[in-house]
């Protein structure tokens, strides 16, 4: 498993990176943490003759916390998120989700931009971005644009990114106080990609009724999703085990569940319902300060 010899380029600025992408077209690929790309090249599932490493592009590795939310540069690594002491309060789901990503060595290299661009439907970060209504900042030859995460993921490993574009950052909206949240994932072994996962959060109005429920699911369909039917079910209701169970059951009913060698769709659907329910129960017990 050795890929053919290739050229390795190290642009010093974002503009240079974009120019190189323009110049080399389909022969070139961006390299970030390499934790998805390098195995694909070695397995010869992907091929390219030029690697453009983003390592020396300044400014992409920052985590910025303001009252407008949290911004993760595309070269922020999983371990940067794990080690950031601000995140557990300003975006607690992020800290919870990252714990489930891969293994120590991979978390040491894998990055936000790489994960978004790779677009694996079982990945945590894309799902979190969709569930939270995050937006992705993109730079290309015609300048910058930004796209809601929900519109970014199209099919497994296929995104709305153009070949000559670079992901710059991911922006999460502000996280209010007293928000309830839960994160549940099931995988065969610790660090494996999820067989299914559920992300939930909601707020409660002064009468203790649920408002703005968000339920995200991953590892289940072609892209990360929001379970609109479950959200509708919860909206305006009081939190409780009965309503959680029903919301979970409804939420998974119409999902187009994918099957693979590890599990058929019946199991995956039932598993997702279990996880949504458990995440809701968890949320009811876990509220941010």
């Amino acid at each position: 498993m050795k890929f053919p010899p290739l050229r390795y380029l190290t642009p010093q600025s974002l503009d240079e990176a974009i120019a190189l992408l323009e110049q080399h077209g389909a022969d070139a690929k961006l390299l970030s943490g390499g934790q998805s790309l390098m195995p694909m090249l070695a397995f010869r599932l992907a091929s390219c003759s030029i690697l453009i490493d983003l390592k020396f592009v300044p400014g992409l590795d920052r985590i910025t916390v303001t009252d407008r939310g949290v911004e993760l540069g595309s070269r922020v690594r999983w371990r940067d998120i794990e080690h950031d002491v601000r995140l557990p309060t300003v975006q607690p789901l992020l800290s919870m989700a990252v714990k489930h990503i891969a293994h120590y060595a991979i978390r040491n290299r894998g990055t936000v931009g790489g994960s978004l661009a790779h677009g694996d439907p079982a990945s945590e970060l894309p799902a979190l971005a969709v569930a939270c209504g995050a937006t992705i900042a993109i730079a290309g030859p015609n300048g910058r644009r930004s796209l809601p995460a929900e519109e970014f993921f199209l099919f497994p490993l296929i995104t709305a990114l153009e070949p000559n574009e670079v992901i710059v950052s991911l922006h999460f909206p502000p996280w209010p106080k007293a928000r309830s949240f839960g994160f549940q994932e099931f995988s065969r072994r610790r660090g494996d990609f999820a067989m299914a996962g559920a992300i939930v959060f909601f707020d409660q109005d002064k009468d203790q009724n649920i408002c703005s429920p968000h339920i995200g699911a991953f590892g289940i369909a072609d892209t990360p999703l929001r379970l609109g039917e479950a959200e509708k079910f919860l909206l305006g209701n009081r939190a409780g085990s009965r309503i959680f169970e029903e919301a979970a059951a409804h939420g998974v009913r119409n999902v187009d569940v994918r099957a693979d060698i590890h599990a058929d769709s019946d199991y995956r659907r039932a598993l997702l319902a279990t996880l949504v329910n458990r995440a809701l129960v968890e949320a009811a017990q876990r509220t941010s300060p």
């Binding site: 065969r188 072994r189 610790r190 494996d192 060698i261």
Partner: peptide
């Protein structure tokens, strides 16, 4: 619990890497 060499009806091996052929790891 984990390891399984799976084939389809055409005799194709479906488990071609350690991402699909699951070995026990230190935490299991």
């Amino acid at each position: 619990f984990l390891e399984h060499l799976q084939y389809d009806e055409n005799g194709q091996l479906l488990t071609g890497s350690l991402a699909d052929y699951l070995l026990p790891t230190a935490t299991d």
